[in-house]
Nucleic acid binder design. Sequence first.
DNA 1: TTGAAAGCGCTAACAA
DNA 2: TTGTTAGCGCTTTCAA
Lengths: 346, 346
Amino acid sequence: MKFEPVTIKDIGKALGLSTSTVSRALRGSYEISSETKKLVLEYAEKINYRPNPIALSLKERRNHSIGIIVCEIANNFFSQAINGIESIAYNRGYHVIFSQSHESYERESVIVDHLASRSVDGLLVSVSSETKDYTHFKQLYDKGLPIVFFDRIANEINTHKVIADNFKGAYDATEHLIQNGFKRIAHITSAPYLSISEERLEGYKEALRKNNIEFDDKLVQYCHHGGMIYDEVEEALKKIFKLKQKADALFTAGDRITTTCMQALQKLEKKIPDDIAVIGFTNTNLGELFNPPLSVVRQPAFEIGQVATELLISMIESKRPVTEFESKVLQTELIIRDSTAKIKTK
Amino acid sequence: MKFEPVTIKDIGKALGLSTSTVSRALRGSYEISSETKKLVLEYAEKINYRPNPIALSLKERRNHSIGIIVCEIANNFFSQAINGIESIAYNRGYHVIFSQSHESYERESVIVDHLASRSVDGLLVSVSSETKDYTHFKQLYDKGLPIVFFDRIANEINTHKVIADNFKGAYDATEHLIQNGFKRIAHITSAPYLSISEERLEGYKEALRKNNIEFDDKLVQYCHHGGMIYDEVEEALKKIFKLKQKADALFTAGDRITTTCMQALQKLEKKIPDDIAVIGFTNTNLGELFNPPLSVVRQPAFEIGQVATELLISMIESKRPVTEFESKVLQTELIIRDSTAKIKTK
DNA sequence: TTGAAAGCGCTAACAA
DNA sequence: TTGTTAGCGCTTTCAA
């Protein structure tokens, strides 16, 4: 099917004017007589003329569009972040193009390459859980493509970054468990080299240390697919339940991991918090409806998206190369509910 | 910041060839000697040449991108549908651009106009809850812009449509409640003129009719913002609870409405299913974790997205105007859990 | 105040 | 087998 759109040339022909005159009239140039302007404007309005943005892009060498790369969109955290991204982009006149890496390094590389070949003025990315090497980003970045990382960042690339305070979020969650009397706290997290995994693990460890609880690496399990694969999560839980020294609490570090753990715990018929207390990073709003209501660490996903987008657009629109970079850290929110209730003393 | 990319001209200059030769060599044209080809290809590879997709779009008068318009992305149904859309689009070499109407007619019109002015080869849309008038779509569609509607469709526009079997989904849910002994079944739904609201209301009514239960319009409440505004939902519930003839069950017709109702019911301290049984359309996977586990009507969101995208791309790529249109109806899934358990006989 | 022409990066019809 | 040229829709010098 084809679209046969009106061009500036058509207007010119219809009105007996040159394309340049029409162009100028359309953009209200001072050098055009007001009669001509009026004539052109009215005609354009009448035939519902719309400039061809592609032709404009070719001229201006930009697109007014930004690309997003995340692992998946059907995820509370990312869909909220994308909402924030879109809210800013829309106001600033940018289109939002997005792709999903599905946690695959391979696919991430292809997407980056594809998006970046000038179909996009800049990139907002949260790396896949498989990504250990950042050269695919680095290359483009060094060529001048603006990139801002959010949530799962590439530390070695010197650009703007926006994250939640993962260290503190994890620290608070762990500390809360300890305050409520739990001592053997298991930790299920994503791939170990992800920035968020590291930061959250450190927060967890720090809380243990402050409370003189020895760190036990048998209590830490990694789900390399970020909770997207149910069996991986169930396996991790089973390993934890098999430990001689039983865990009495669980701190999960990721949206998908947290919800999948809850499903697996239900399937394994574990009582929360009696068999095991649970708190986790997640952005679902439904935690309060769970049985029992789930204690969570909530990330300001929407704001993260907004801030990242503002930084990206400022980079895109900057006249001179940007050399000062910001790493914004937004605070998480600890929401305490019954899944971490104090153990009842019988 | 600027990107200064390599062009075909640069290659030509470096190699002492004309741009057309380079162009042809790059696309492996048979009329180019294999030496020249090799020369060009190797050089292009070396300097990491990427064709400018904007220039291509300008030539081909298309973009290889499709636009999505939905009310919001942070919604289980839509994020899953978008996942399906992206999966097909990616494989067929299309970018996905999206915008949110936030249930606003105003904003929807602006977006449509903006996206459609040739930054997109076709549109996938689920209309906003405020939309009663479809001329903004009709105009573009008549001009030749391919549009496929999914979920919330514009019946009066003659194009492909993809929906869940809303009638049957609603019928099944209502019938299930009746079978379990509930008789006064309230229905909370979105804006009344939305296609999905109509279809679901009809399914609900039909189940009542078949079971000789009189339809009572006091039991039907509309939330014009599709559940995005908490107070609107709480209000609707309060009205239902104020009825003289008490409702004993609730059938909610929308992802956001269902989850928001659950929150409101919790706040109002209603016991489910003793005070009121609940079943609703929703695509959350977390319903089984609720207290009690929630009975749901699940839509095949991912598949709906996929099918809609296939239809759209077939329209875009069709040589001749498409005149035969399909209305695909995919089946919903009824998942029974404890929120609709039979009333215990004391 | 308006028009002619060049150019953004690419392809393709036409020449050589 | 390769080069020249025009053109996609637009903006913007340079001329008039």
